[in-house]
Amino acid sequence: MEQPSTHLKIRQSGPVSVIEFADRKILEELSIQEIQEELLKYAESRPGVQLLLDFSNVDHLASAALGMLITLHKKVQEQSGQLRLSNINRQIFQVFRITRLNQMFDIYDSSQQALEAFGAKK
């Protein structure tokens, strides 16, 4: 039985799990570790998971959060699933661009566009 998360808000949109972050700042080492554990556990228990991480609530992140996303990306791939990101604000997208991680992740302007892209891949 999964415990309700203090860091994540999870809802289902058809086959896609849409996950929003409860914290505006993904900064603290401890909370990043907790978020990572929750996300990995979520992906592990759902082979073929279609996961959309919605960043609309996030206005700051630390580089450790990027590491968390990379680890999740690998896990989702191992599970033959798909991971997409959406609603990343301009300042945070710049962090992805500087680190070249915009090339690793499927990033969409809106969650609607990301959801449509999941549908297109079916």
Binding site: A62, S63, A64, G67, I70, T71, I98, T99, R100
Partner: peptide
């Protein structure tokens, strides 16, 4: 190194 989960702080 793109898939390494750490080591981005200094370059940022």
């Amino acid at each position: 190194n793109l898939e390494r989960p750490s080591g981005r702080g200094i370059m940022l």
